[in-house]
């Protein structure tokens, strides 16, 4: 199913902003909030996983319910997960489409990666001591 991906700040994301390699931050930024009707249509429940695709990549997220969202829109808190599938196109404004990207969502059984794993996937090397 096609959705508009909206990303933004949340208190939980902000709280863990200085330990982004930690579990709490990754749990929050790896969440895909959806309208219950959309979840029903997709056949997923809260705490089940979905995979989001765009032309630039894919990422596995944990589904969660948000009745405040309109149908057809998902919300992902700022962080590595949403940016893994965001195009760098800015239409010559300097600003990517952080709140206005079309994504394809399907249910999945694949494992959700942590933020650190997503970095490693790109060839990054986290520093172990902290």
């Amino acid at each position: 199913m096609k959705f508009i991906m909206n990303t933004g700040r949340t208190v939980r994301q902000g709280k863990h902003i200085e330990s982004k390699l930690g579990k709490a931050y990754g749990d929050e930024t790896g969440t895909c909030y959806m309208h219950p009707m959309d979840m029903l249509a997709l056949g997923v429940e809260a705490n089940e996983k979905v995979k989001a695709f765009t032309e630039v990549g894919e990422v596995v997220l944990m589904a969660a319910t948000d009745e405040g969202l309109p149908e057809g829109m998902i919300f992902i808190p700022y962080g590595r997960h949403c940016n893994a599938i965001l195009s760098p196109t800015t239409h010559s404004t300097g600003m990517p489409d952080y709140k206005d990207t079309v994504v394809e969502i399907v249910p999945t059984d694949e494992r959700r990666k942590s933020a650190a794993e997503l970095m490693e996937e790109m060839g990054g090397v986290p520093y172990a001591e902290n």
């Binding site: 630039v56 970095m119 902290n130």
Partner: peptide, 24 residues
């Protein structure tokens, strides 16, 4: 690294990148 689209972060990885920041 957290807030830029994937392609931008990949380029940061490919070039010398220096970070001045209190936290990892």
């Amino acid at each position: 690294g957290a807030h830029f689209p994937r392609a931008c972060v990949e380029h940061l990885k490919d070039i010398p990148t220096i970070v001045i920041d209190p936290f990892q």
